[in-house]
Design a protein around this nucleic acid. Sequence first.
DNA 1: ATATACTTTCAATAAATTTTGAAAATTCAA
DNA 2: TTGAATTTTCAAAATTTATTGAAAGTATAT
Lengths: 168, 168
Amino acid sequence: MKLTEAKQQFISSWGAFGTHWGINRTMAQIHALLLISPDPMTQDDIMEELNISRGNTNMNIRELINWGLVERVLLAGERKEFFSAEKDIWKVVKQIVKERKKRELEPMLQLLDKLEEVEGDKRDKNVKTFVDTVSSIKKLGKQADKTLDMMIKAEESWFVNSLMKMFK
Amino acid sequence: MKLTEAKQQFISSWGAFGTHWGINRTMAQIHALLLISPDPMTQDDIMEELNISRGNTNMNIRELINWGLVERVLLAGERKEFFSAEKDIWKVVKQIVKERKKRELEPMLQLLDKLEEVEGDKRDKNVKTFVDTVSSIKKLGKQADKTLDMMIKAEESWFVNSLMKMFK
DNA sequence: ATATACTTTCAATAAATTTTGAAAATTCAA
DNA sequence: TTGAATTTTCAAAATTTATTGAAAGTATAT
C-alpha cells in the first residue's frame, strides 16, 4: 500500500472510530492528520488536506486544544499559527481519560450520591430495586474513578508491567 | 427526593450519558428503566413510562437484546412478551466491554496491522512518522485487548482485589 | 494610522440520526 | 381455519448535529 492511500485510510477510520466515542468525525480526522504529520500544520493545510471549510476547521482545532490533544505552535518568522498533536500515545490516552473522567464520570457519581438517598420504605420493592441498582453502580463507578486516577499518574512502562503481573 | 422524581432523573441522565458513548438516548433510557424495575416489563409498559412510540420501543429493545443487556422473559399464562435487564452491574460492564471490543477494537487492530506495512523509505520523515504512529497505537491497542480479555473472564471480587494490590 | 494577513464567530444550510405510526407479518387460542 | 392480539418493519417526518462561508474581529508590518 502506498503512503497516500494508507494515510487516507487511517484518517477515515480514525474518524469513524471517533463517532463511536462521542467525538465528531471531523475532530477525530484532524487529530489523526496531525498525529501522522511530522511537522506542524496551518489551518489552511488542514482545510486543504481534509476538504473542509475554514469555520469547521477552526472550531474543531480549538476543541482539540481544549481537550489538550493539540497545541498551537509559533514558528519564527511565520505570521500564521501552526498546530501539532502530542505524539506520545500513552500521554494521549491519559489525557482523554482525564477529560472524560472529569466531564462524565465525576458528574455521574455526584448524581448517584443524591439519588441513593431517595425517601421511602426499603420494604417497597420498587424502592429497594432502585436503591440497590444506584448503589451498585456507584460502587463500581467509585472503583473506576480511583483506578483511572492512578492510571493518569502512571508511567506507561509501570502501568504495562503491573498489568502484565496482574494477568500473568 | 421522592422515588418518582429520582427515577426520572436516573433515566434521563443515563440517557444523556449514553449519548456520550455512541449509544442513542432511547436505548439508554429503556435500559435504565429496566435496571430499576423490580419486575419484567412489557413493550406497552415501557412505551407508556417513557412516552415513546411503539416502533421506537421495539427497535431499541431488540438492540438491547443484541447487546446482551436485556432478555425476553415469558411469563406463564401471559400472551405478551416481558423484558428484563441483567441487574449485576459487573456483568453489565463486562458485557459492554466484550461487545465494544469485538465491534471496535478488534477491527481497528486489524486495520493497523495492514497500515503498518506501508511501502516506502523509512528515511522519508513522512513515512517514518506514519509508521511510528501506527505502531505505537497498535502496541497500546494490543495491550488493551489482552487486558480487556482478562477482565471479561474475571470475577468482580478478583478484579477489584487485583487493582487494589496494584495501586496500594 | 492604515492596509493586509490571518482568525473567529454565527446564522443559515445541509447532513445524519432518531422517531413516528400505520401497515404487514406473526403468533396463538378457539 | 379464522380472527384477535401482539410484534415487526419501514417510509416519511421530526429532530439533532455538523458544516459552510461570509462578515466581523484581531494582530502585525509599514
